[in-house]
Design a protein around this nucleic acid. Sequence first.
DNA 1: CCTTAAGAAATGTGATCACATTTCAATAAA
DNA 2: TTTATTGAAATGTGATCACATTTCTTAAGG
Lengths: 242, 242
Amino acid sequence: MTNPSLVLPEIEKSGKMTIQEYAYVRLRHALMVGSIAPGVPVTIRGLASAMEISPTPVREALRRLSSQNALCVLENRRIVVPPMTAKRFHELVSLRCAIEIHAAERALPYISDNIIDRLVVIDTIMDEAVKAEDQITLIIQNQLFHGHIYRSNRDQLSMPMIESIWLQLGPFMRIALRHVGSFYGVDRHKEIIAALRSRNLGDLLKAVQADIHDGVGWLDNDALEKILGPGKSGNTDEHLAL
Amino acid sequence: MTNPSLVLPEIEKSGKMTIQEYAYVRLRHALMVGSIAPGVPVTIRGLASAMEISPTPVREALRRLSSQNALCVLENRRIVVPPMTAKRFHELVSLRCAIEIHAAERALPYISDNIIDRLVVIDTIMDEAVKAEDQITLIIQNQLFHGHIYRSNRDQLSMPMIESIWLQLGPFMRIALRHVGSFYGVDRHKEIIAALRSRNLGDLLKAVQADIHDGVGWLDNDALEKILGPGKSGNTDEHLAL
DNA sequence: CCTTAAGAAATGTGATCACATTTCAATAAA
DNA sequence: TTTATTGAAATGTGATCACATTTCTTAAGG
């Protein structure tokens, strides 16, 4: 039978949406908020019956997610959520910094007051989510916050890559959050907003970098090893065990 | 009937390769070397019959390429090679610089003498390709050159993104090359190799940036507008007409 | 108790079919 | 000549089926 432990959060299904896109969006969201843990086997038929659709659109959705490195196709052709390692985690964060700094710099000339107003609204929502300890809202709104900035540059081409990184970080962050109470002790978003208001490039890039770092910075090497390698704690290449 | 103008260069078909992967690799290669021009309609059945396979694996291959932004899914669900614009081109080059500089920096600690030797061999092949005006070999070997450096860091995660950019640049470069005799007047690869030999980070990043810039730098705004907008030359947003 | 072997179940893959929509082309009207 | 219109062809989509491979389970043997 199908895997009963596989829960896919419902999503709004737009009318014009193809079933393949529905499957993609739903799976994507599930990965983004960490509903599917690393190591859990992801089967075509399992997902198909879970979403009550045929295998065909699921296969296409899985190909899309695999191409974004949100899923990993093994040699046996089985598909899994890629296990996290300490090295991979650091590469991910470093790459996220590099690309988002680039995106922020390219977006700054297009930042309007309307956009800043919207960012303030998102930031307020996030403040409330912090109090309510609503981590899923936190993840989603944080991505909206950053995406809203970078997408101001309408010719920007980095968003797909940034989203790919978010997708790779997602499944792990959810688990990491279980080991720590919360995150975002310092609110760097207000610094980002201030830098945008003054149109100060240097401040903006510093704030973005600080925000990304703070979002994962509480995961020092010790914490990482504790989460990643319950067995052999010395090996940072250990796969993430559940 | 199928589109007879659609020529897909043959590729070597490994034994363990699934048909879907074969379709993906072949299409990918065709895009990379510019065999499929922007604006050309890419149909599932057309590709399937061109490659003498069924539509199913073609669909999956197209999803993969769309996810890498090598193809573009229109609202009519039709798939096309994304048209180039001047702005998009500049964003692409800028993004390529940002990511490849990051990748180079992260790769430097892993560069061994063996790797440098291999780079020298590739560079030699490229020198010969320049003389022979073999542009396809030039494109392929240039990618091998850069990829060999970045992949030295075995935990690196930026290659898929770099390849995505190459894939987006590919179809356009082929057309641009028709308007210019050749490229690579100055050989920045030797500067890259020298920087790698001395393990000098600053020199390496400068050389990489210069190489990327030189690879497209001869396309100044005038040349771009000439290629992109044969009609309204003033509008840099014009789509690339064939 | 552990290992091994065989049968059963599950899985990925690719082809084919049906259906709705879109695109194209030929014809008719202005 | 140009513009509508109408029927045919083409196209994307999703479901289903068959087949080969893999994985899991069960039972026998040590």
